[in-house]
Amino acid sequence: MKEYFRDIFQSIWTVLLGMKITWKHLFTRACTMQYPDQRWVLPERSRMRLFNKIEDCIGCGQCVRACPVDCIYMTTEKRTKDEAPVFASDGTPIKLRVTQFDIDMSLCCYCNLCTYPCPTHCLVMTPEYEFAVYSKQDFLYRFAKDKPVAPPKPAHHTPVPEPAK
């Protein structure tokens, strides 16, 4: 009998305690981020979409070798002696013409291993992460503009909008 009344009292009491907690939370600030309007400040060196500044690429293939999932497809052809010499922006002579430089971003695991060996620092990670597409084919980014197999999709640095306060 004593237990019966104690149970009733206790259940009413705990319900009130619970209600007090939810009441407090009713007035706490929501932690929701309204995504397209507000964005996270990305950490420095965030690893999102890859970008190859093809003018600087010397076609050395270091990145292709480094990639653990083999999702960089590159073909080159030798430039002839008669062609005017070209240099990358850091002065490295470009001896090979990169005819194909495709990265399949649907396979990429964003490990960033390809960017370290790049001697001219032309292959970089960009902070661009909104690149969802309707077809898997569109994830194949073609950076070689000389002989594009399909119209090249411009991969560019999209400035990250200021996150809302």
């Binding site: 939370h25 009713l26 600030r29 929501a30 929701t32």
Partner: peptide
């Protein structure tokens, strides 16, 4: 709205 705010969310916006 009440549900959302009690769970520190925003609800329909």
């Amino acid at each position: 709205k009440v549900a959302a705010h009690m769970q520190d969310r925003l609800g329909p916006m």
